[in-house]
Simulated assay, not measured.
Amino acid sequence: MQRPAPSSCRPSGRAWLLAIHHRTDLRIAAPSTAVSRLFSIVGADTILRIYPTVQTVLAA
């Protein structure tokens, strides 16, 4: 199911995402432009492993 891209992210949401990242092998595949921008604004793009496509995640 496709969901609308978020326009903001609460600090608790960012904390949850980063906690999951530290506990698992979290990989983000093909985020929308809005999500990519949000990750960039909060600095998550420097921490999370973000891939342009599902195929690149599977190949990594």
Rank of each mutant, 00 (worst) to 15 (best):
H21A: 07
H21S: 07
L26Y: 00
C9Q: 08
T56E: 15
Q2W: 09
A5C: 14
L48A: 03
F39N: 01
R3M: 12
V54I: 15
D25H: 15
A15K: 14
I47Q: 12
Q2M: 11
A5S: 15
R49T: 03
D25F: 11
M1S: 12
Q55D: 13
A5F: 08
V57N: 08
R3N: 03
Q55A: 08
P11A: 07
D45E: 09
I50H: 03
T24I: 02
T53S: 15
L18G: 03
R14V: 13
R37T: 03
W16E: 14
I20N: 09
Q2C: 10
L26A: 01
L26R: 03
R14L: 13
L58V: 10
A29F: 05
Y51K: 03
T46M: 05
R37W: 04
M1C: 09
L18Q: 00
A29H: 05
A30Q: 10
T46A: 13
A19R: 12
L38I: 00
P11L: 02
A34M: 10
T56W: 03
T56M: 12
R23I: 03
D45K: 06
S40N: 05
H22S: 13
H22P: 00
R37F: 06
T24G: 04
S32E: 13
T46H: 11
I47V: 09
P6C: 04
S12T: 15
R10V: 14
Q55L: 10
R10S: 15
Q2V: 07
A60F: 04
D25K: 13
S36H: 09
L18P: 04
S7L: 12
T53F: 12
G13V: 02
W16F: 11
G13F: 06
S40H: 02
I28R: 01
R37L: 01
